[in-house]
């Protein structure tokens, strides 16, 4: 298995490590690679769009041609996991803040994203989340200037909510979470994604 991590900006090395740990846990032979150019996505079984600044990641994706390549791969069935900024980039719609910055959105998931849904860094928080898809044990959600989804439609399924806000969504092979599973030792979310890529 080969997982490509969009490595333009943000918590890239953390996702590389988390993906490798999850592969080990599942006993999957494979590699996680740092992707900076479209050709580096050749032969990947899944793509991760990490957290960082979504305006920066979106602009660099467009500039490098990764934007069109990822869109094409997703439409042809390659699973994608987007965390934090990645949730925004995957969304079809953005709020006023997102529209104002004219940041490019892949528009792959039937969700409407709200930027900084919980506030600024002072309001960033950790809390236990109930995500039944991942089992009974709560999942430690690390929310850093996190976005959320205000609504979902079509085939998009809500996997978790926190304080009434949608923080995890799945739509077929696409998975978007508002928090940072790569910042905790718990690999269940990455394992879940890797199983989608199998």
């Amino acid at each position: 298995m080969k997982i490509g991590i969009i490595g333009l900006q943000g918590a890239v090395s953390e996702h590389l490590e988390a993906a490798k740990r999850a592969m080990q846990k599942l006993g999957i032979e494979g590699e996680a690679v740092w992707v900076g150019m479209p050709a580096e996505l050749d032969g990947v079984d899944g793509i991760i769009i990490p957290g960082g600044e979504s305006t920066t990641i979106g602009k660099l994706m467009q500039m490098t041609g990764l934007f069109e390549r990822v869109k094409w791969l997703a439409k042809n069935g390659t699973p994608i996991l987007g965390t934090c900024a990645g949730l925004i980039v995957l969304a079809k719609r953005g709020d006023e803040q997102i529209a104002r910055t004219k940041q490019p959105l892949l528009g792959l998931m039937d969700i409407s994203a709200i930027r900084n849904a919980f506030g600024r860094q002072r309001e960033s928080f950790e809390a236990e989340l109930e995500i039944s898809t991942l089992g009974k044990e709560p999942f430690r959600g690390v929310f850093i200037r996190a976005p959320a989804a205000s609504e979902v439609w079509g085939d998009a399924q809500v996997l978790a909510k926190f304080q009434g806000k949608i923080v995890a969504v799945q739509q077929g092979g696409l998975l978007a979470v508002a928090f940072h599973p790569e910042l905790t030792p718990d690999t269940r979310l990455h394992e879940y994604f890797l199983r989608m890529c199998r």
Binding site: G7, G10, E53, F125
Partner: peptide, 22 residues
């Protein structure tokens, strides 16, 4: 439900989101 603000993980995590940036 317990909510934690200002933890070391949140502070250092914020810095990690800046990596590769200007």
């Amino acid at each position: 439900m317990e909510i934690v603000f200002g933890s070391e993980r949140l502070k250092r995590g914020f810095a990690k989101m800046q990596k590769g940036g200007v």
